[in-house]
């Protein structure tokens, strides 16, 4: 974990209240998709944990939704400005544990970390199928980017304004192993449809690196900190 300074290369709205921020800085310590960064913002005491959407050498892509004061501040930041982030944080997804044909199931602002995950799965020779859920047409993002990875992609919207009307779970079919990230009700629904998988959880965090016990949660394997031992928990250990 390092406190790294990044230069903003791009920060623009790609769907309703959803922004993509591309940053220039040291990404060499990232070990797995599903890890996150904790961003320091002027005038805000706590950092903001944001999942890593994708990375390459010295380039980091984040996608975040404006949900409060901190993410609103971020949305006003401009190209050329700098920000600091503690990173990489969390365990991330375990690619090696994936079967040949997993489903990658994401909902809303839970979709971003699944992009690098899917890329890594493809690079590892696996054949993931991507199921994405959003509330409405104006909330949809990254469908084309996922397709460009050469994987089948299906989209559902709750109001039926784009893709299939319904939920991510309506797109899963008979897949038995899921990689998932999204709002809690969605994770729970995906969990009950499959027999195994890896699920990424959100939590209100204090430090983001395991020191404060602010996001400690019960699992079948004992107490785990979402920030440090997670955010990805395995299907087998989750307690709802």
């Amino acid at each position: 974990m390092k406190d790294i300074e990044f230069k903003i290369l791009e920060n623009r709205e790609i769907a309703r209240d959803v922004f993509r921020m591309v940053l220039d800085g040291d990404t060499s310590e990232i070990t797995a998709p599903g890890q996150f960064v904790n961003i320091s913002l002027p005038g805000r005491y706590l950092r903001r944990p944001i999942s890593i959407c994708d990375w390459s050498k010295n380039k980091l892509t984040l996608i975040y939704k404006v949900v409060g004061h901190g993410t609103e501040d971020m949305s006003y930041m401009e190209t050329g400005e700098y920000l600091r982030a503690l990173m990489p944080l969390g365990n991330g997804y375990d690619i090696a544990a994936a079967p040949e044909n997993p489903v990658v199931a994401g909902g809303g602002v839970g979709v971003p970390p699944l992009y690098a995950l899917t890329r890594k799965l493809v690079e590892a020779g696996k054949h993931p199928y991507v199921a994405l859920g959003f509330n409405s047409k104006e909330d949809v993002f990254y469908e084309d980017e996922f397709r460009a990875l050469g994987v089948p992609v299906n989209v559902a919207t709750v109001d039926g304004s784009y893709g299939k009307k319904g939920f991510v779970t309506d797109l899963i079919g008979d897949h038995s192993y899921a990689f998932s990230c999204g709002p809690l009700p969605m994770l729970k629904a995906v969990y009950s449809r499959v027999q195994d998988g890896q699920f990424s959880f959100e939590a209100r965090m204090g430090c983001g690196f395991g020191a404060c016990m602010g996001c400690s949660t019960r699992t079948k394997d004992g107490y785990k900190r979402i920030c440090k031992d997670g955010p990805v928990l395995s299907w087998k250990e989750i307690v709802w």
């Binding site: 209100r204 996001c215 400690s216």
Partner: peptide
Amino acid sequence: YGNELPRIAECPDGLINSV
């Protein structure tokens, strides 16, 4: 184990914790 989540609330120049 401690208290239920959420345990953290941000404040101007500080935070509230209930671990």
